[in-house]
Design a protein around this nucleic acid. Structure first.
Lengths: 199, 199
DNA sequence: TGTACATCAGTGAACGCGCGTTCACTGATGTAC
DNA sequence: TGTACATCAGTGAACGCGCGTTCACTGATGTAC
């Protein structure tokens, strides 16, 4: 038992990679089993030798996409100072190239509004992904809270920039979000941040 | 031709209202014709007396939901000063009640990441909705750019707060985004807002 | 006002289609001797 | 090393199901006279 196991593991890896792309490009409802398997160079019937069902695959694909994206957009900034960290993240994330990378971009932006409607496995992966990204970014961003807010700004900005059909408005959204992210007064961790009332 | 036309218009109104709820609660792929018609108190067959197809309904439902939400979350602040406008919007938008209002909340947050994958009619409605919201908010927010960025922060924050399965983290996201929205140094419209490179 | 006919919003069965999943089968890989 | 058998990743047809859409039909509403 060696060649066979290696090949199976390699197939599984390709399936997850294909699912991670399709999931971001087509959304949670759009990444079909047959489509993913075809992209992995297999036929759909063999899928259940690797996963108990579609949702298990999507959860793993999401977790993988988020793990890769975490390093890519929020990582590698250990040496930098606070303000530079924020600027670097904004520059990496909110730009036309990332906007165009539908199947290879940040999974938060690709699926943000789907998580609320997704099943427990996907929500779990999303939660762990956000926790991990916030933890990675917290030192440079000035704490967990600012890290979370920066991520939210990036995710909302990229999703809206991708969603509008007017390129000028789309560019404007990216630019405006970069600016807001940079415009924070330094050093304050106080304040309530607004009332909880209203709606 | 009077009673009949009135009843038809009333049916249509109920169909659009039901679609606007379902669309936000279930997503673009989840708002089925039969489901929407049942919620409007009708059977699915009669749908095509009102709309040429499903996508036309969804586009109209989205436009309506965005129009209502625009006044609700971004409007009625004509008298307020800049900083108060931003605080009011953040308080209205990023709170637990709105987070829980899945089928009656802001359509941007409910569908943000779906727009990029949606057909032209939905993208058009989303674009017009964002333009209109930014125009409404621009005077109080200090310009169109800051208005767009504030909307993106709200949308990203609410989508992430809804997506995670950990209530404490969800609260933290709301709080952190309110804080970031309020932390802007006043009066600056300059700056590039970060590089366009990277990805 | 009353009567005969026309219209058409709404009904419910049926359609074609794509999807997730199941299953009998195949053939390369692994094991026993 | 060689041979007989076992395993199991992958194939492709078939399934049940839900969906958007179509269509013949119904009955209340509207029109003509």
């Amino acid at each position: 038992m060696k060649l066979r196991a290696l090949r199976k593991a390699e197939s599984r890896r390709r399936i997850v990679a294909a699912a991670a792309r399709r999931l971001r490009a087509e959304g949670a409802d759009g990444a079909g089993v047959a489509e993913v398997m075809a992209e992995a160079g297999l036929t759909h019937g063999g899928f259940y030798a690797h996963f108990p069902g579609r949702e298990a695959l999507l959860a793993e694909a999401l977790a993988q996409a988020l793990a890769v994206g975490r390093d890519r957009w929020f990582g590698g900034l250990d040496g930098a100072e606070g303000r530079d960290v924020v600027a670097a993240v904004l520059g990496r994330y909110l730009n036309p190239r990332h906007r165009a990378a539908l199947d290879d971009g940040c999974a938060f932006a690709a699926l943000a509004s789907d998580f609320a409607r997704a099943g427990p496995p996907l929500r779990r992966a999303a939660t762990e992904g956000l926790e991990a990204a916030a933890a990675l970014l917290a030192p440079g961003a000035g704490g967990r809270g600012p890290a979370l807010a920066l991520i939210a700004l990036c995710v909302g900005g990229l999703a809206l920039a991708r969603g509008v059909d007017d390129p000028a408005l789309s560019d404007e959204v990216l630019r405006a979000c970069r600016r807001l992210g940079l415009s924070r007064r330094d050093g304050q961790e106080d304040g309530d941040g607004g009332t909880d009332l209203g709606g």
